[in-house]
Design a protein around this nucleic acid. Structure first.
Length: 264
DNA sequence: ACATTGACCTGAGAGC
DNA sequence: TGCTCTCAGGTCAATG
């Protein structure tokens, strides 16, 4: 699930729930979802503290800890999300970390497949550099020109470039397909062979698709009629624009959907 | 530099 | 019902 729009929604959820609340208790199970700390250490670092601010870069969510020169970094893997609740009956399945606040509410980090990680970091910028992440796909510093340079320097298939976090951070399998569908370009097209004009079009659609997805709370059912995402998984799915049956293929071993007539 | 593959993980859903 | 197989929105490392 979690690509840039999903993580942006998680950030807003976190801001609306967990921010500025005193932390009473932290439980982690199993500890393999942690990076660079033990559950005991994390508990010591968080207890009595409050989260004071959040940041997002690509698919990563950062939460700063007040009074402690430290941030907590959340990555959600393929199946991660956050859930804030009070009643024990509302506790989600597959919660891996549970933070209990003084007000009695809890924030669960849920991850069915345990492919995500939670780890401490000194500074988001250093973490981003260390991970080798490219600019966030929605950051103002990524303009059309910067995007053009990134794409022109890549010899790979355009879909692979879009999903490469070191090129642009935040796009995963679903939104790469959506962006290329909206831009009318085949996912296997070589990035470096795209014209200036087409690269600009991809950039414009990328920003548009991601903004719309955030506005839709990253829920496919809320997305516009002309989006591919809500129908990509249906058997025999058709193009929302021309009605042609969508093609299925695999790129970098990820399921890929495109319309053979709208995407040339 | 790039594509490919397997590993990391485990549940859901399909097929038998 | 229960077993087995395949698939899934992510990342990383090794290989060709």
């Amino acid at each position: 699930m979690p690509e840039l729009p999903d993580v942006e929604v998680f950030k807003r959820y976190f801001d609306a729930t967990a921010l500025h609340q005193s932390i009473r208790e932290v439980e982690v199970y199993p500890e393999q979802i942690l990076g660079g700390v033990t559950g005991r250490e994390l508990k010591l670092r968080l207890s009595g503290q409050t989260f004071s601010a959040t940041r997002r870069h690509g698919k990563y969510l950062f939460a700063s800890l007040d009074g402690n020169e430290c941030w907590l970094v959340f990555h959600f893997g393929m199946t991660g999300y956050l859930k804030y609740f009070k009643k024990p009956t509302k506790k989600p399945l597959f919660d891996r970390m549970l933070i209990t606040f003084e007000n009695g509410y809890r924030l669960a980090y849920v991850s069915k497949r345990k492919l995500g990680r939670i780890e401490p970091a000194e500074q988001p910028d250093r973490f981003i550099r260390h991970k080798g992440l490219g600019p966030d796909a929605l950051s103002p510093e990524l303009d059309a020109e910067a995007f053009r340079e990134i794409v022109a320097s890549r010899d790979a298939m355009i879909k692979s470039v879009l999903t490469d976090q070191s090129a642009v951070a935040g796009i995963g399998n679903i939104y790469a397909d959506e962006v290329l569908f909206q831009a009318g370009i085949r996912p296997k097209k070589k990035a470096s062979r795209l014209s200036h004009e087409l690269v600009d079009r991809i950039f414009g659609r990328m920003v548009e698709v991601l903004r719309i997805a955030v506005d839709c709370r990253a829920e496919p059912d809320r997305m516009p009629e002309h989006f591919l995402t809500p129908r990509r998984d249906a058997e025999g799915a058709t193009c929302p624009v021309c009605g042609e049956t969508l093609r299925k293929t695999r790129i970098a071993d990820r399921p890929t959907r495109y319309c053979p007539t709208c995407q040339s």
